[in-house]
Simulated scan of single mutants.
Amino acid sequence: MIIQIFGKKSCNDTKKAQRYFKERGIKTQFINLLEKGISEGELKVITKEFDLEMLLDIDGNEYKKRNLKYMVYDVKELLCEHPILYKTPIVRFKSEVTLGNQPEIWKNWEIK
C-alpha cells in the first residue's frame, strides 16, 4: 500500500510530508489538489476521521481573499469547486488519515 499525500506544491507542510517519507524510502503518491480534487470515495474515507469543516483552511490566504468568513456556504460544495481551500497535507495510509504535518503519527504506521 502506498502513502497518498493530498496537497499543494507550494505548501510547506506538504513538502515536509513528502520529504519525511522520501527520507525513509517510503513510496508516496502525490495528488496535487490544484490539478485534481479529492474523489467522492477518498472524501468518504477522509471524513470518517475529520469533519468537512476541519478540512477547510480558514487561516489560509485564499479563505481570507474570498472573504468567506462572512458568507454562508456549503463546505463540501465549496471544497469541490475550490480545492485550493483544503487544509494540507492530507496524508492517507490504508484507513488512517492525518491532516497537516504529523510525523509523530506517521512513525507509528506499520508501513512495509
Score class of each variant (00 low, 15 high):
Glu35Gly: 09
Thr28Ala: 01
Lys9Gln: 15
Ile2Gln: 15
Cys80Lys: 11
Asp13Ala: 09
Val97Arg: 12
Leu99Val: 01
Ala17Gln: 08
Glu42Tyr: 03
Ser39Cys: 03
Lys87Arg: 08
Val97Asn: 15
Gly60Gln: 09
Ile46Trp: 01
Glu104Leu: 01
Ile58Met: 09
Pro103Ser: 11
Leu85Asn: 08
Leu68Trp: 06
Phe93Trp: 09
Val97His: 12
Gln29Ile: 13
Cys11Lys: 00
Lys76Asp: 03
Cys11Trp: 02
Thr88Gln: 04
Ala17Gly: 05
Lys65Tyr: 11
Lys107Gly: 07
Asn101Lys: 07
Pro83Tyr: 08
Asp51His: 11
Glu110Lys: 15
Lys36Cys: 11
Arg19Gly: 01
Ile3Trp: 12
Val45Arg: 08
Glu23Ala: 02
Trp109Gln: 15
Leu33Pro: 03
Gln18Glu: 15
Phe30Leu: 10
Asp74Gln: 07
Pro83Cys: 11
Glu35Cys: 10
Leu56Thr: 05
Arg66Met: 15
Tyr86Arg: 04
Val72Gly: 09
Met54Pro: 01
Thr88Ser: 13
Glu40Cys: 08
Gly100His: 06
Thr47Trp: 09
Ile3Asn: 01
Leu34Arg: 05
Thr47Cys: 02
Lys22Leu: 06
Tyr20Lys: 03
Lys107Asn: 15
Lys94Gln: 12
Tyr70Gln: 06
Leu85Val: 00
Glu49Pro: 04
Tyr63Ile: 00
Thr98His: 13
Ile3Phe: 10
Leu99Trp: 10
Leu33Met: 02
Met54Cys: 01
Gln18Ala: 10
Thr28Lys: 11
Tyr63Asp: 02
Leu33His: 02
Trp106Gly: 10
Cys11Val: 11
Lys69Val: 13
Arg24Ser: 10
Tyr20Leu: 02
Lys15Phe: 06
Asn61Glu: 14
Arg19Pro: 08
Thr98Asn: 12
Gly100Phe: 13
Lys69Met: 11
Leu68Ser: 06
Phe30Lys: 05
Leu68Arg: 02
Val45Trp: 05
Glu110Gln: 14
Ala17Glu: 10
Thr14Cys: 00
Glu110Arg: 13
Gln102Asn: 08
Asn67Met: 03
Leu55Ile: 01
Asp57Ile: 05
Asn67Cys: 07
Asn61Gln: 14
Lys9Asn: 14
Phe30Pro: 03
Lys76Ser: 07
Glu96Thr: 06
Glu77Ile: 00
